[in-house]
Amino acid sequence: MPQVNMTVNGKAATGTVEGRTLLVDFLRETLGMTGTHVGCDTSQCGACVVHVNGKAVKSCTMFAAEAEGAEVATVEGMAAADGTLSTIQQAFQDHHGLQCGFCTPGMVMSAAALLRDNPKPSEAEVRDYLEGNICRCTGYHNIVKAIMAASGQDVSSIAAE
């Protein structure tokens, strides 16, 4: 069985995989990094979003072997080494952008990719960008609000409580 080598959150990661081993399964089962989640089998829900070489990717729709030599970023790498949450994570906490938390890693990773490409997105741009991220708990209201807040935009006019 082939070996795969990649960098995950800045650290070298290696493992023995099958051809059919998905990147998400390599992360979760071989590396024990269970922050990335699997919520569907048709590549739609986005709970599995990670970054591969700086681009948002659905890790359930990519084989581990295809990430050979790649730099992979997962939600586990978003907070600082001392546990301080990233701006996006803190915004999700502050604005109640998560309830059960299952979709949240994918939302956070998609948000990070969005804000890298579009630092001050409009509400419509945020909603459009989340086309591939499904949430069943929040109704998206506080997720969109959190992402706009994380981008430094004023969200005080968005109805809260």
């Binding site: 569907c40 909603r127 989340l130 949430c135 069943r136 209201h141 109805a159």
Partner: peptide
């Protein structure tokens, strides 16, 4: 599957 069962996405709803 979600290919035929339509789930609401962020773009299907406004701020409430």
């Amino acid at each position: 599957s979600f290919m035929d069962y339509a789930m609401p996405r962020a773009s299907d709803v406004p701020f409430y």
